[in-house]
Amino acid sequence: MSRVNRRAFSRMSPGEIAFEVFNAIFMLCVVVMTVYPFLNVLALSLNDSLDTVKGGIHIWPRQFTLENYKTIFGYETLIIGARNSVLRTIIGTILSVFCCSMIAYTLSRKDFQLRKFFSVFLALTMYLSAGLIPGYMLIRHLGMINTFWVYIIPGIVSAWNVFIIRSFMDNLPYALQESAKLDGANDFTIYARIILPLCKPVLATVALFVAVGQWNSWFDNYLYNSSKIQLTTLQYELQKILQSTTVSQTAPRGTSVLENMARVSPQSVKMAITIVVTVPILVVYPFLQKYFVKGMTLGAVKA
């Protein structure tokens, strides 16, 4: 693609130029449309919470304040939560990408005897859901309640990610493995030395999905570890604050009870905590991005 880039504008046909212009305008529209909700959250988080009630804030705060952030950083559990969130994201992502890609490799080997069986066995898990209670009982019997590992182990294998990686591997030239095989390399070596490096774009993608999933999950924290403050996560702390409003589904009848429920954390504080919890994971993206914006030069590897 680098050579494509170097082509001068002057050599483009009128049709090409029209395409370029249209494309640039289209992309600008996309930017404007998609950046808006996020800027809106940011502006609200920096606005005075009483003033926020009046509405009409778009991408710029009306009454600038850092009070909302001060309120959030007053929560002591935030540090513990941040530590656990970072840990589970890093450990969970590395393990999951490693395991999923390994499975994907075995499934991409058309000659592997268990290929058919394992594919079906794995694919069905995407659609079989046992429900909350059996899942909970399993974790309990495995002794994983109130442990850090409950964040990592149950989610390590995701069928979805496996199939994504496999579909990428299916497109790799088989000749590479052939030649390595002839050199006497075993299957694990082929996977680790030859296949993995070629899969960087898809691994980066899956890593992003897993990392975002790990970072954003709070339900496992709530379900299994809510009684242990040392194991709290950032996302769970956020949910606790946000939940003070969203009881709507279970709202009972009768006004004096409802009065209790209308007591909410101010919207601006909620937006501030959303920013605090979201920004760290956004930073991951640019690091991974280079693997799928620039094309891999497969040709070089082949030679």
Binding site: I103, T106, L114, T125, L128, A130, G135, F188
Partner: peptide, 20 residues
């Protein structure tokens, strides 16, 4: 070697709870 541990894993975490 690369797949059997995961078959067992998937069985435990995804199929066992189906008794529910």
């Amino acid at each position: 070697l690369m797949s059997i541990p995961f078959i067992i894993y998937v069985f435990i975490f995804n199929y066992l709870p189906l008794w529910g």
